[in-house]
Design a protein around this nucleic acid. Structure first.
Lengths: 152, 152
DNA sequence: TACATAAATTAGCCGTGTCTAACTTTGCAA
DNA sequence: TTGCAAAGTTAGACACGGCTAATTTATGTA
């Protein structure tokens, strides 16, 4: 069950993580992927409501770079998840829960972008990279980003 | 084609990105997701070959936290992609191309981890977050991480 | 050598997130 | 007021990356 104490190689450059710890890490990444769609949508919906007064599927589709049927399907998933409220053929609005999630996501997004900018990454790249990175930043790392920012 | 000059709101807190630029950002993230599987596998395979002399599906599965049939299926995709070479029921090896990719991924991984550690993130979290973040770090951002590291 | 066990594969299922084609609804303008 | 264009939805397909159950192959040991 437990590993034998003695090995051919007794010396390690750096201690390897256990297979279990490694597996847990990958599980966390897979889990993050599952919530990415929801996070991207509510974030974008909040942005659209703020700047245009409403979030129309056609605008969501354009900004996400996907086709309208994809938006319809995903919006209905968000509705099932309780993040979004809407009537057929009408604009989309966020529930309380959706708003809370959007707020958290936008805050995290802002921090990641600001942090990358503070590192000297240009605006285009910072914005692009943040889109992918933000979903994988733990609270602890986010705090480290913030701390580092305020110390500049 | 071009946007009308005058708007209801002439003042922006910060200039919004165009829908196209935003859509391109999301497209890049989606693209990154497609190569994540390949990157995680070749990185892990290289690691296993280095530490154990060979990469067996059972070990890959354990460390990835997935079941063996998943590994079989994905390995065959990697073979099709030309990243991996192997005979049925035998261990997996990397092609030249696979090795090059693995090397690039491991380098990026090391830099991301080192950077997070330098920010004061603890080892566990750094390792976990890096797993997700590394696939979304552009060359430019990676360079910024490195530069910041060397300046410590 | 033969067999039990471990490893790997195959077959077949599922949910996600994308697409195209075709249809329905909305709402504006003549 | 009616009719058309734009927006939205539905239906149906597909690839991906997971899974379980059942099967096949490899291997070490009795």
């Amino acid at each position: 069950m437990t590993k034998p104490q003695s090995h051919d190689r007794e010396t390690f450059e750096h201690m390897e993580r256990t297979p279990e710890a490694q597996a847990e890490g990958f599980a966390i990444v897979r889990q993050a992927h599952e919530s990415e769609m929801a996070e991207d949508y509510v974030e974008l919906i909040a942005e659209l409501i703020e700047t245009r007064g409403e979030a129309r599927p056609v605008d969501i589709a354009e900004r996400l770079g996907v086709k309208p049927p994809t938006v319809t399907k995903n919006i209905s998933r968000l509705r099932t998840a309780g993040l979004v409220r809407r009537e057929r053929y009408r604009a989309v609005f966020l529930t309380e829960e959706g708003q809370a999630l959007a707020e958290a996501c936008r805050r995290r997004h802002r921090i990641v972008v600001a942090f990358l900018l503070s590192l000297g990454v240009d605006e285009e790249a910072a914005e692009r990279d943040a889109e992918g990175i933000e979903h994988h930043v733990s609270d602890e790392t986010l705090a480290a980003f913030e701390k580092n920012l305020s110390q500049k």
